[in-house]
Computed example of a mutant assay.
Amino acid sequence: MTLVRLMGRWGLAVGLALLMAACAGTQEKVQRSVDRNMLTYVVGKPYQSIASQRKTTFEGLFQDDRAYGEVFSQATLANGDMLYRHLDRYESGEKSSSMFGVVGTSSTQISYRLIYFRVGPDGLIKDTANGFLHGEVKDCTNWVGGIFQTCDDPARMSQTVEGYDNLVLTSSGQPLSSWGL
């Protein structure tokens, strides 16, 4: 193999690695933007009906997944409004390798969508906030073509409510403290 071809392949590998690293940051920006745009349609609607909506994907038909995740905390704001914090945990990427189908490994990136609702005394959504967090990695080892498998799956990140609150921004791009929390 010539030196030029070797350098070309090395350059391609480095370029792909940089592209993949950039995608991780891009995923966060895209998810935040999509959520923020989606949430503009729920303002003024009853919180209970929005919070109980199911995902509309094929996956959602077979799972009990709520479109905006599950409520993990709630608080009363200074003006009497309620703050409902939702968290949606999902698998956002996977890497795997296999040695002749006998032994294989896989790593799955877990990510979290943070969606907050500010709800007035009348039960209507007044505003929303959202954020994103790359979470833990679930590592698995499988044998005999995946028939036998063991996984290390931490159930949830050990993040505090305040830590999540620091990751979200309101629909106007302000920190959560602007709601009087």
Rank of each mutant, 00 (worst) to 15 (best):
I110K: 03
E94L: 05
T56P: 13
G8C: 13
L114C: 13
R156W: 11
T40Y: 01
V71Y: 02
E136R: 06
D153N: 08
I110D: 04
C23Q: 09
G11A: 14
I115Y: 00
V102T: 12
S158C: 01
R118V: 15
G15L: 06
N37E: 07
D88F: 11
T105E: 11
G101P: 14
V161R: 04
G44V: 04
Y68N: 01
M99F: 15
T150P: 00
L16I: 12
T105V: 04
L169E: 11
Q74E: 12
G11Y: 11
T76V: 14
A13W: 12
S49T: 14
A24N: 03
V168L: 05
V43A: 10
P121I: 06
G135I: 02
S96A: 05
D35N: 14
L87V: 07
V102H: 06
R9T: 13
G135W: 00
H134T: 07
V14R: 13
E136W: 03
A24Q: 08
G173M: 01
A22F: 10
G60D: 01
M20P: 03
A22L: 11
E136K: 03
N142W: 14
D65N: 06
G123E: 12
L12Y: 12
K55E: 15
G93L: 00
A75Y: 07
Y68C: 00
L3T: 15
A155H: 01
D35C: 07
Q48E: 15
K95R: 11
G146E: 10
G131C: 12
D152T: 09
R118P: 02
W179L: 14
A129W: 03
M99V: 14
K45I: 05
G11F: 14
S158N: 10
A22I: 08
V71L: 00
V119K: 00
M20H: 06
G173N: 08
N166G: 15
Y116Q: 13
L87K: 10
P46R: 09
T160M: 00
K55D: 10
E70V: 02
V14H: 10
G120N: 12
P175E: 13
L16F: 06
L12T: 09
Q74A: 08
D64E: 14
R32C: 12
A129S: 06
S158E: 09
G146P: 15
W143L: 14
V103N: 01
I115V: 13
H86L: 03
P46C: 07
W143Y: 15
P121K: 15
L39T: 05
R54S: 11
N37T: 09
Q109Y: 01
N166P: 02
E59A: 10
Y68T: 03
T56I: 11
I115G: 02
K45F: 04
A21K: 07
A22G: 12
R85P: 00
G131L: 07
A129V: 03
V34C: 00
L6T: 11
S96E: 09
L18S: 11
T160W: 05
L181G: 08
R66G: 04
D127R: 03
Q74K: 03
